[in-house]
Simulated assay, not measured.
Amino acid sequence: MLRQGAVTGILLMAVAQAAEAPMWNLARLFHAPKATPAEGFQADGMQALFYEGLPYRGKPTRVFAWLGIPKVEAGKKLPGMVLVHGGGGTAFANWVKLWNDRGYAAISMDTCGCVPRGSYGNWQRDEQGGPPGWGGWNQINEPREDQWTYHAVAQAILGHSLLAAQPEVDADRIGLTGISWGGYLACIIAGVDSRLKCVVPVYGCGYTNEHGFAGSVAALGKEAAERWMRWWDPSVYLPAARMPMAWVTGTNDFAYTMNALQKSYRLPKGPRTLCIRIRMPHGHGPAGEAPREIHAFADSILKGGDPLPTFTAQGRDGHQVWATFESQRPIARAELCFTVDRGNWQDRRWEAAPAQLAPGRATAALPDGVAVYYLNLFDCRDCVVSTEHVEIPRSIP
């Protein structure tokens, strides 16, 4: 007979193992959820839906979504995009229309248990919604399956399954993009939902304890912070991502700083494209939804369009920096992006200077005192691609 201490130890071990079991039941999430019309919501050319989510606190949930499917010729199918909103947002019909106008079917779901009635950051709660966002800081001691990230990731994957099940949609040509907290979710989803053919995080990345939300992680206390990072940080999931990813952001993002971004984009095993503009604004609308690089990247993978330029190598020889590249489109210009500041990433002053172009190669001379630099190429569509940023010592050898 086992002693009481041994029994207690076995029970604790079982609880710990259960807590670290696979996070999501993909067999369930990869099955299209049941959907019903959402009465009282209208937008031209699209459907307002509720679809079944995962249980929250033991009760069924539903997820609001806008689904838009353009007209398609008989016998043909459309590519699709899954759209994951950011902090203060909800399901956005205009975002769906943006992709519909480009020839894509698209779905945008609310990930915080709300419906699109109210105002930005103050949307109406749905009585059958899941947990509220963002970050789930105050939920960390609740059951794992009742926390926001668990539900938000599942809701997006279920949205993908619903979109893929539409008869007009080619299930093998679906991508996903997310903005801010939606970009954070996109990073996790990229490592969980292998069906996706491309993923575009806008602003969002992993290593939450090293960027603008580091204080929120630390405030949880040591044990809870470690648990949050182990369960909910994208760095845990990004190594499993295999699809092409484009990372779209700016140098001075208030939340997702370049140090954490770089560590994040180095984790996935698939091809990556960086699109980093100096002081890119942060937000929904044109800022985060409409960068032309997002659409060109998706078109190249899902519609057979010309790809964005690709850097093949980069380096530095003293003050001289260089990068080699390949491009199917003409390159209009190149620039050296740099800062001499070494303080908080959000506060650094970035400047741009023309770089020299030769066939397949860009070069530039570093000004004195540069702390960080990278190179940008702009093709004839004014799409930008970036090298990795490089931090250099105070005195260049």
Rank of each mutant, 00 (worst) to 15 (best):
Q4I: 14
A6L: 15
T8C: 11
I10N: 13
V15H: 10
A19T: 14
A21K: 10
P22N: 11
W24N: 11
A43Y: 14
F50I: 09
K76C: 07
M81E: 13
V82A: 10
G86F: 04
G86E: 05
G88M: 05
K97C: 05
N100S: 10
R102N: 11
Y104Q: 04
A106M: 07
I107L: 13
C114E: 02
G121P: 04
R125A: 06
D126L: 01
D126Y: 02
G130A: 04
G130I: 01
W134E: 10
R144F: 13
L163Y: 15
Q166S: 12
G183S: 02
S194V: 06
P201K: 04
P201I: 03
P201H: 05
V202M: 04
V202A: 04
G204I: 02
Y207A: 08
Y207I: 08
T208L: 14
N209M: 06
A214C: 01
A218K: 12
A225H: 02
E226K: 06
R227G: 06
M229W: 01
D233T: 00
V236H: 08
R242N: 07
M243L: 06
V248C: 08
G250C: 09
T257Q: 10
S264R: 09
L267P: 07
G283P: 00
G285Q: 02
D299N: 13
T312E: 08
A313G: 10
Q320I: 09
V321N: 02
F325I: 03
E326R: 14
I331S: 02
C337Y: 02
D341I: 00
W345Y: 10
R361D: 01
D368Y: 03
G369M: 01
F378M: 07
R381L: 13
C383L: 06
S386G: 03
T387G: 08
V390L: 07
